[in-house]
Design a protein around this nucleic acid. Structure first.
Lengths: 342, 342
DNA sequence: GACTTGAGTACGAATATAACC
DNA sequence: AGGTTATATTCGTACTCAAGT
């Protein structure tokens, strides 16, 4: 009786239906789907045709139940509609799909990290990617790592087993940006930092400091507005302007901060880059159309997302993932060099 | 033997384990989880305690298999990292979770819409939300609607059963923006439009035209750059500047276009808003820090996302969803009224 | 004996039906 | 009876093992 069409409602076809139509057992159908090489070509053809004719599709729930593999991956990322995290989420998703996984995203913020984990575990995810910008999030990621495969995306975090960490080299990006300003002849280069509890913010501070030091320049205090937004950059720039010896260049920890800073500079009647050069970080959309176009550091978020997924899949499949660190890339525009290109 | 801990590997506990520990049958455990009112309080307590002690968690795959309900919802959205779609996706996700659903997002772009549908159907999603900015996408959404519950987010699309459509009233937003400029005394108000195949672009054109007409003003030709980016806005603005009688105000179909247009105006040595007033659309992050801060129209994407999800859940549960149309809101800044406020 | 195919059962939760106090 | 609990079966796929060529 199994598989027989016994009602009026047309249910979606199951293996047994395909088997009946092809004149084989459901087991053979299963084999055609999973190990086609074990089935005689002529039989396989018949089964494949039956599948096509019926529009048969595997039932993932049943499959997951039998294999204990859900093909689901959880992605935890901060709720902030920030450029980096959202770019990454997209990249991870695309990479996952082409690897046969579906991603479920969730933010810990309306509720709690524990609640998110619970949500994921109930769904039966095979692994989790945690976009962990702060130490707190990273610590939670580490806690999970004992339970199931976890990959953290966290710049500047120590890579301690069993947690695998993927990151962009923020320190290098910051050094590149700072070097660029030094090469232009600047000697008083300020830094507008992001929130200190973010790895990215700290790494960029360190890169800036390191490059200044290696050039024999004085390392001023870090300025910060408290957040990553343009309003914070505006406030930070105002502080800088009140300083006894005003900097001739500002390296902002992201493009939004830079945007706010540029506005503050304009308000103060200063020209960019003639009076103060500005460099941002991220290369978000439209930075080329800021006033003036913003020199910034592009981050390979797509790469990073792919790497994160690859590392997670490797962990799930029991392989040992390789450490990955993608290089950022300086994009020079007018906010640092002027329209004449120098 | 069922439920007995017979191996060395500690598997996650199943219902039978909970039942054994609580001294009841698995059926009672199931009832405690699904219809607690049918279980005597004392028994329920024991079961709940056993659940807590074992850290038991329901297996969604098994549950989905038995109930034919996956608790999964598919979200199709264009790959573009555009403000609207990504905001919506986030809102939908949050709303879904609080309704007990998980969302799986996918973009049709690397592959095909059919492929995405296949992906979703194989996963067993209970319904799909299609963010359909163009007629083509909307048509595909309509095709699906016969197969399973579908809600489309599409501005300006006819609401024909069985497809339920949710949207923001773009025409009203455009009218508000245009009205604002008319009230400021402008008589030559140009419009920089988005790609014509987008519903949103068309609705904004219509709103602009309608408001001009109702004010007895001439309706000029629409200008467009071909896309939604700042570069397109820049190009479109250059066209406007070459016109015999230059407009005194520009209403751009989104903030990026406005940003590009403002840059073109600056390049031409024009002041904003004294020479040309500019209004955008979307109120993306940081528009308050543009040069000058941009007057724009805020869209309630969160609301829209929630509405879309609510409509889909209603459809899934067999209820009849209500039509929803959220109002946009004009945000006045200096790009139209100047720093003095008028 | 290599190659194919089939029968039977496990996976974990839900539920209809029957049994219990 | 009336409120609770137990037994048996179902969902659709995968996989072990055995049987057929």
């Amino acid at each position: 009786m199994a598989g027989a069409n016994q009602g009026l409602v047309k249910r979606s076809p199951v293996m047994a239906d395909v088997a009946a139509r092809a004149g084989v057992s459901h087991q053979t159908v299963s084999r055609v789907l999973n190990e086609p090489s074990l089935v005689r070509p002529s039989t396989r053809k018949r089964v494949e045709q039956a599948i096509a004719e019926l529009g048969y599709r595997r039932n993932m729930s049943a499959r997951a139940l039998a294999t204990k593999r859900s093909s689901l991956i959880g992605v935890v990322s901060p709720a902030v509609t920030l450029f980096g995290p959202s770019q990454m989420a997209t990249a991870i998703q695309a990479a996952a799909r082409s690897s046969g996984y579906a991603t479920i995203s969730a933010t810990p913020e309306p509720t709690s990290p524990t609640e998110v984990l619970d949500f994921f575990l109930t769904l039966g995810v095979e692994g989790i990617i945690v976009i962990a910008p702060t130490r707190q999030t990273a610590t939670e990621a580490r806690r999970l790592a004992g339970t199931l495969p976890v990959v953290a995306v966290a710049a500047g975090m120590r890579k301690v087993r069993p947690l695998h960490v993927v990151a962009i080299d923020n320190e290098q990006g910051a050094r590149d940006a700072t070097r660029h300003l030094i090469d232009l002849g600047h000697e008083r280069i300020a830094h507008i930092a992001g929130p200190r509890d973010w790895f990215d913010a700290r790494a960029r501070i360190q890169g800036w400091q390191a490059e200044l030091a290696s050039a024999g320049l004085a390392v001023p205090e870090v300025t910060e507005g408290g957040g990553w937004g343009a309003a914070d950059g505006y406030a930070a720039a105002q502080e800088l302007l009140a300083l006894p010896s005003r900097p001739t260049a500002v390296f902002a920890a992201n493009d939004d901060l830079a945007l706010g800073a540029m506005r503050a500079l304009h308000h103060a009647g200063l020209r960019i880059p003639e009076d103060v050069a500005v460099v941002g970080y991220d290369d978000v959309a439209n930075t080329a159309f800021y006033e003036p176009p913003l020199t910034t550091v592009r981050q390979p978020f797509d790469d990073l997302g792919r790497h994160a997924l690859e590392a997670l899949v490797a962990t799930i499949e029991g392989r040992r993932p390789e450490a990955e660190l993608s290089p950022p890339q300086l994009v020079v525009r007018e906010s640092s060099v002027g329209s004449a290109g120098g």
